[in-house]
Design a binder for these strands. Structure first.
Lengths: 216, 216
DNA sequence: AATCGTTGTATCGAATCGATACATCTGTTA
DNA sequence: TAACAGATGTATCGATTCGATACAACGATT
């Protein structure tokens, strides 16, 4: 799950650990703060698997001019206004770049079965849904919808119980409300998706690339 | 966190592992299905700590004393009469009972600082809020409210970003909506709490509802 | 110059997950 | 009746994730 998130972020540019964490927090919006105790092992894992490559940015950076600066300049340009083209990272930063194998792993994980009751995994996949084909996108949404429907049945059954005190009942009611909200959101997404597929016959998958070959 | 949930459930009667899991799912409504890989270690943990006592209710249990079996049969009879259609305790079951030390641990955990961004822990505490004093109850709700307010600021900032595609934006928007919903829920709980403390001098908790049920 | 907050990498133990194994009881159907 | 599927029930394994902590360089404030 973290692997998918990391690969998805690196898909759009090289990043270092701290920045990945930040983007998971506010760019992807939802994920509770990922701890470094998860993040760094995950990065090491991915590097061992050959999905990413870590580049020490402490010395003369051999690749600092390309996509690396493209993604990092927004964050770092303000700090390094003195030097424009080449970064001068005195600090020991480790920038990670996705590999071709990593891109393959990403698409594989993105379309994966998406284990049962996982809200985080689902939101994450929707965040990266532009990398999916329209069919896989709809499949993802519908899978989640049936899951939520089942969940709603359970929670509504719990609502009917008469042995709950005010507080427990309030929690259950609020939970049911949240699930309904999620289902409504899904329905809106599905409707938009069908809308898009009906009007987009000439230009499917706009702005997204399923596989963009980049030399590595 | 799991310890708190287990102790809270055992507070209302002896249970065995499978049943604890079930109640966590639909009685408490919210928790994603707790895996047995968490549950049984947690029970062993609590038993080692002296917070619960496990009673073998199966065949040929050499350590089960006659006294233990005697009291156990009474408990099992009560349990069976309550849930005849659903649960039928027959053989090889291990029923857990909370101890006095466990009750102390429960109240201690229930009033604990409640680590930063934990939605599950909060809902769990609200579910058991009837065991809290009105002051601690309000403190719990207000603590959570400021957390959610901060969270909302972050998420709203993310909403303003212009580099998000439709899907990522939809996720962020929906997340923000969810946080607002949670805050509204908290406000309703807080209002009900103040209401109760002002009118409750003679008639505590008359089986009414905290808030108007939001049906649809 | 001293101190504080932010950025940044890293590791440790414990909690939790997801999968799996195995055994008993119940109801259905061949 | 026998076989089978499915719920109930306990338990453990490896891998993932969490929460706390340590450390270090830098910028800004005072």
């Amino acid at each position: 799950m973290l692997d998918l998130a990391i690969l998805g972020l690196l898909q759009e540019g090289d990043l270092h650990g701290y920045e990945i964490r930040r983007r998971l927090r506010d760019s992807l919006g939802l994920m509770a703060n990922i701890s470094f105790g998860s993040l760094y092992p995950a990065l090491a894992r991915l590097e061992t698997a050959g999905a990413v490559r870590g580049i020490e940015a402490g010395t003369a950076s051999p690749l600092a001019t390309g996509a690396a600066m493209g993604s990092l300049s927004g964050e770092l340009a303000a700090l390094r206004s003195k030097r424009t083209a080449i970064a001068r990272p005195k600090k020991s930063k480790k920038v990670y770049r996705i590999t071709d194998a990593g891109r393959g792993l990403f698409t594989e994980l993105l379309a994966a079965p998406a284990t049962s009751d996982d809200a985080r995994g689902f939101s994450l996949r929707v965040s990266f849904a532009k990398y999916l084909t329209p069919e896989l996108r709809i499949a993802l949404l519908q899978r989640r919808r049936t899951q939520l429907q089942d969940r709603l049945s359970e929670v509504c059954a719990a609502t009917k119980r008469d042995d709950l005190d005010v507080y427990a009942r309030s929690v259950v009611d609020h939970t049911a409300q949240g699930v309904r909200q999620d289902i409504a959101w899904l329905d809106a997404l599905l409707a938009a998706e069908r809308e898009r597929s009906s009007t987009d016959l000439t230009n499917p998958n706009p702005g997204g690339q399923v596989m963009a070959p980049v030399n590595d």
